[in-house]
Design a protein around this nucleic acid. Structure first.
Length: 532
RNA sequence: GCGGGAGUAACUCAGUGGUAGAGUGCAACCUUGCCAAGGUUGACGUCGAGGGUUCGAAUCCCUUCUCCCGCUCCA
């Protein structure tokens, strides 16, 4: 028997297929043709995702005295996004190349001095010829063609060219906002626009002025779906700290949905417009950010390992100085080696006192912390006021689910090289069902009855168990291997004689005989140890 | 959004103008009883959607939606 570590591109397709077949993930609104970048979690998927998120909550909140939870609303006061800088910065200036149709971000395009030569290079001669004719028709004559290259164009005033073909012939920059906007309240915002137009405000206005007019009307009731859960925690910093008498350093943790109008969505549930986050803001004294950044780096990496991800497929990627946000003094990504390559699972950032300061300024409220035991460095007297600094581990729950699925998926082959089984080697605590209870023969009423009794024991103990009598024993094992059920208990004739059942382990299919009386304890202990 | 590939049964796919198929799965039964066993029977499709050409379209043409691979990214 051999193991497959298949890294082919079709691995993703196999996982997507299994997700649908076994009820982990379905495409949203499938019967209507599906919706781009939206996915539903089926009966198995919702269990897996909740188990993953519960593990996070347990590690971050329940097992720690210094972190408390929060669930803030998805729609917040629009000024939150004004203060946080999202309204101003969370958007990309998009430009279309008029020659090759490439769409790109203006701020990432190759720079050229205005007036500098800008040769245009197409992928082949034919395209170059077509582009030459098209440009000539548009009034850009005098370009000469040399093979697949057009010479004679010069860079324009905006100082960049198309990253694909080098063309300076570009559409205007259009802001692509990463935030979903809606309107709150009983007043129809469109009516406001119509009224404004009727009042004649738009008389003689050009496109830009018309847009500004419409924006102005919409802005009065505009609200946004949060693009991250973090701001809710900053905004409630004082309420949480004071109501729980938290002492710095302490953290606020939150799990929940966030929304981003992504330019491109990709890789199944990896990048989607609606996604779920697990974020924690750790507030510490000024100057302690770097220390806690190191601390949380290690904590978070070992957490991902603790839920079963292969250590060799996890790594840190430090952000370079050019990559850091202006307010950040250090940032690491935790990356996972997905079937398509290394990609981000979690970002751990030292954010200084930027966020609390921004909201203090925006709201006019003091977001200070008073430490009675510290000495004020300026006066030398006891008692110190300061704005805490923040270290933020922000993990993708949705991405976590995908990483866990990719890591767990395994194919086994027999001696002839034939696929013998597909097994999800999920960490037992993440598995949708912990236990399957199987009567060896479903026609034996006594076995069936005994099996159902055992399932009830597990239900009463709060362990997700499933009674299953369909088909033959082999098929039942195979089906539970595919959904990652770590333990199968089989009731057979011997059970009726001596009150024992076999427990069969998913990963290596070994079997042991245990007493029915001990079954719940055995499984509980196995789950605690993560035994496979 | 652009370029490339693909949409046919729950899944994987065959089917190039003439009555929609296979394997797996699913349901029932017989035999069997610890790793996708054998046998019998059965259900399932507006061939992604819409329009067009044609006596006739899964097949040819147009439009559209969705997915995958690249460009994109910072959960």
């Amino acid at each position: 028997m051999s193991q497959s570590e298949s890294k082919e591109p079709e691995l993703m397709q196999k996982i997507v297929s299994l997700c649908k077949r076994r009820g982990f993930v379905f495409q949203s609104s499938e019967i209507y043709g599906g919706l781009r970048s939206a996915y539903d979690y089926g009966p198995m998927g919702v269990e897996l995702k909740r188990n993953l998120m519960n593990e996070w909550w347990s590690a971050m909140v329940h097992t720690r005295e210094d972190i408390v939870g929060l669930e803030s609303s998805i729609i917040m006061h629009p000024q939150v996004w004004q203060s946080s800088g999202h309204l101003a910065n969370f958007k990309d200036p998009l430009v279309d190349c008029l020659v090759c149709q490439e769409r790109f971000r203006a701020d990432k395009a190759p720079r050229r001095e205005p007036g500098a030569p800008a040769p245009i290079e197409l992928s082949d001669k034919g395209r170059a010829k077509l582009a030459q004719e098209k440009l000539a028709q548009a009034g850009h004559e005098g370009l000469t063609r040399d093979g697949k290259t057009l010479q004679g164009a010069v860079a324009g005033d905006r100082g960049y060219v198309c990253p694909n073909c080098g063309s300076p012939f570009l559409s205007p920059e259009r802001d692509f906002s990463g935030m979903f906007r809606s309107n709150l309240g009983p007043v129809d915002p469109i009516k406001g626009v119509i009224d404004a137009v009727k009042r004649g405000v738009s008389e003689g206005a050009d496109d830009k002025a018309l847009r500004a007019l419409a924006e102005d009307v919409l802005a009065k009731s505009a609200v946004y779906l949060r693009p991250e859960t973090a701001q809710g925690m900053f905004v409630q910093f004082l309420n949480v700290q004071q109501s729980q008498s938290m002492k710095v350093p302490f953290g606020i943790a939150q799990m929940g949905k966030s929304f981003r109008n992504e330019i491109t969505v990709e890789h199944f549930i990896f990048r989607s417009c609606e996604f779920e986050q697990m974020e924690m803001e750790y507030f510490c004294a000024p100057g302690e950010g770097p220390k806690y950044l190191e601390y949380w780096k290690d904590q978070r990496l070992s957490w991902w390992q603790s839920i079963g991800l292969t250590p060799e497929r996890l790594r840190f990627r430090p952000h370079g100085p050019d990559e850091l946000a202006h307010y950040s003094d250090g940032c690491f990504d935790i990356e996972y080696e997905f079937p398509w390559g290394w990609d981000e699972l979690e970002g751990i950032a030292s954010r200084t006192d930027y966020d609390l300061n921004a909201h203090a300024k925006g709201s006019g409220k003091k977001l200070h912390y008073f430490d009675a035991e510290a000495i004020d460095p300026e006066t030398g007297k006891p008692g110190r006021h300061y704005v805490p600094h923040v270290v933020e581990p922000a993990a993708g729950a949705t991405r976590g689910v995908l990483a866990v699925l990719c890591d767990a998926y395994a194919e086994e082959f027999d001696e002839q090289g034939q696929l013998s089984r597909v097994v999800l080697r999920l960490h037992p605590r993440l598995a949708p069902y912990k236990v399957a209870v199987l009567p060896l023969v479903k026609k034996d009423e006594q076995l069936v009855q005994r099996g159902r009794e055992i399932v009830t024991r597990f239900a009463e103990a709060g362990i997700a168990a499933r009674y299953d009598e369909q088909h033959t024993i082999g098929k039942r094992y195979a089906r539970h291997d595919e959904i990652g059920t770590p333990y199968c208990l089989t009731v057979d004739a011997q059970t009726l004689e001596d009150g024992t059942v076999t427990i069969r382990y998913r990963d290596d299919r070994r079997q042991e005989r245990i007493r029915v009386e001990d079954a719940v304890d055995v499984v509980n202990e196995a789950l605690r140890q993560g035994r496979r």
